[in-house]
């Protein structure tokens, strides 16, 4: 159980790191981070890690997208987010979270399924 949590946490961090790294590549397509995440999923599957690929990937994207938006807004001190108003800002951040979450979650799950052909996590089914 402890190892599963550790691996999940590690996977969460690695997925986020991959996204940040790929996004630093100039000219890369907005979705290009899914390719290494799929590859990561394959590796996870081959290693037979019992982690929830969809859930971990989704959580990574769901946290990273809005988190990065808030980080850049704080760093730039820009005026775009406030123009949306509080409700607009919440909707924008939620939409970003869902987009990032689905993208990373599906990518990790796809990779894992390619390698194993099924979910290895009965407790947290994908």
């Amino acid at each position: 159980m402890s190892q599963r949590i550790k691996r999940s946490a590690l996977l969460l961090i690695v997925v986020m790191a991959i996204v940040v790294f790929v996004k630093m590549i100039p000219g890369a397509a907005w979705w290009s981070c899914v390719i290494p995440i799929v590859a990561l999923g394959v590796w996870v599957g081959l290693k037979k890690w019992t982690v929830a690929g969809l859930g971990i990937g989704f959580l990574a994207g769901f946290l990273l997208w809005p988190g990065a938006i808030l980080f850049f807004h704080w760093r730039y001190q820009g005026g775009l987010l406030p123009r949306l108003g509080l409700a607009g800002m919440v909707i924008f951040l939620l939409a970003a979270g869902l987009t990032g979450g689905l993208l990373c979650g599906l990518a990790l799950y796809t990779g894992k399924t390619i390698a194993t052909g099924k979910s290895n996590e009965p407790a947290l089914p994908d």
Binding site: K23, W30, I69, G79, L80, A95, A96, L103
Partner: peptide, 18 residues
């Protein structure tokens, strides 16, 4: 296109850069 627009690394939030 929402994928690009809300992408934190290349999307609208990057237009806050001075």
């Amino acid at each position: 296109p929402p994928g690009m627009l809300i992408d934190p690394f290349v999307g609208a939030i990057q237009n806050e850069r001075p």
